[in-house]
Design a protein around this nucleic acid. Sequence first.
DNA 1: CTGTTAGCGCTTTCAA
DNA 2: TTGAAAGCGCTAACAG
Lengths: 330, 330
Amino acid sequence: MNKQTSLTDIARVANVSVATVSYALNNRPEVSEKTRQRIKEIATQMNYHPNKAAQGLRTHQSRLIGMLINTFNSIFNGELVDDIRKTLDHYGYSLVVIGNSNADLIDSQLFDALIIFNYTTTKSNLTALIERTKIPIVLMANELDFSNVDNIVIDNQSAIANLLKQYEKSKHKKICFFRGSRNSYNSAKRFESCQTYFKKYHPEYNISKHTFNGQLGSAPTYPIAKKLLSEKKYNFFFCLNDMMAYGVYRAASELHLKVGIDFSITGFDNAPKSGEIYLPKLTTADSQLNTWSQEVAKSLVSRLEHPETPAQKTIFVPTKIVHGDSVLYD
Amino acid sequence: MNKQTSLTDIARVANVSVATVSYALNNRPEVSEKTRQRIKEIATQMNYHPNKAAQGLRTHQSRLIGMLINTFNSIFNGELVDDIRKTLDHYGYSLVVIGNSNADLIDSQLFDALIIFNYTTTKSNLTALIERTKIPIVLMANELDFSNVDNIVIDNQSAIANLLKQYEKSKHKKICFFRGSRNSYNSAKRFESCQTYFKKYHPEYNISKHTFNGQLGSAPTYPIAKKLLSEKKYNFFFCLNDMMAYGVYRAASELHLKVGIDFSITGFDNAPKSGEIYLPKLTTADSQLNTWSQEVAKSLVSRLEHPETPAQKTIFVPTKIVHGDSVLYD
DNA sequence: CTGTTAGCGCTTTCAA
DNA sequence: TTGAAAGCGCTAACAG
């Protein structure tokens, strides 16, 4: 483990001061083009790479953005993370993802900003974390009111409204709901929106009595769906995410029931990876990952580059209905 | 963004020197128990958290272990990452995951060690990266010979041998293979093992002629499988991972063919999350994530704590056959 | 245009 | 048992 080359090493070889080397490598105008070239060459030859710790200590910024996630497993949306990473990269920031119990890293002044994604903890833990962390924060599945946090979340409410429009237009009227756990922000929000809608337009129908917990997964949904489908009590399955919808698909396939004919079904998320082998195509709401990741990156970068920029509080990322053939219309 | 408290701040308040504060907080014997307590209390009160950059600069170690991955999407095994993270955590190291194009972070002396997982690049890129990086490295899907790298990989060969034993015992003899791309280390290794086996035991059967590219996914596999199943040319589907096997399942279901009766099939990985809704249970090889992650963490920690420990070159993590009902025996 | 120097926050040697 | 001080590698203010 022989030492990495440092600025001092280069300075010695180039016969200049460390300052000059620093200027040269940071492309600052203080140095002549000739020296710059010479120093850059030497640096490359000596395989120089700046020491991030030293830079960070000196400048009080790391250009590192931390993303805190619960688990690398689970409902974790990789494409979204990739998108955010790329956008931040473009602005010269690096995304580093850390798990749950490494949250203490955040306190060690390693990150310039923070993205909290898919991170479930008690509200008080999260609040405490935010309160002692003064850097810009984006919450992607929460709505909390702090001066340094932007909440950038899916517009669940309008998406649900659009999805329920499909229900209104459908021939199938006996509706039931599949939701996930109560402490999933998105599942809770979506269900709330359903309730509000039904209280307003179909007050006679108490949807809580027709709601099942599919735990946001196809596996837990499948047996429930199989039972419900055989009983023929429902013919519209309103699923609060796609995975659960595919659990229903599977059950239907085994019962030789035709999706979009014998019954209707909608999902949420437009997660093609999981469902591309299912036919017919599912009618669902696309979370527009691209817009979402752009907003997240933009929020952080602008607050980082212009510290006076205030957090914008809550941004609702629009969704788009993707029309499949899983709903039978009137 | 008012400044974080530093050792100096605490020293001032406690009326001691920074050295004493450092001793106290690092639980070193040089300081009296009384002062230690007093200082610790003050530190907590002042919400002190050590600055990692400063620590790292001074000690030349960060206790940060970087994991380099290709994409956060794809064939990325979250459970495995979680396991590694937990084990490292237990030894006092934090895992941070970074994507593809942020590989330059590695050169910035931020990490004490490196895990390269699921990272596809040209061999020369990877080699160059390893050569200029002097810290301990674990490769999880590659076999490269460098003094600072351990290759800790699935024992594909013995797994394939065990899987092919199922084929030998099966009633179904018309075998075909589903593999992924050639630059997937695991897919390549597995296919190689199949070839070696057939050359030895069934030299008359040239398996390349009966091999299809399912791109390691169920979606690309599905249409190919549907065609093959209808043609009835094959009745044993040997899939180099589970996802492709589920593509075949789906095709079979649509053709009303019974898995384990009309034809046999095996997988690889034992990825329950993806397949738990498929019946009957797939016969596959379990990659024993737990053993794997332990080995990875142990290798790094021991090399970190005892720098004289040499890399052990290649460790093959054993697999275990999981018997399902997808093979019809004689 | 180039060099000298202070100092970021921390650990650790050496002296008291 | 405590403190003074050096220095990790870097940036930037200031002097020349």
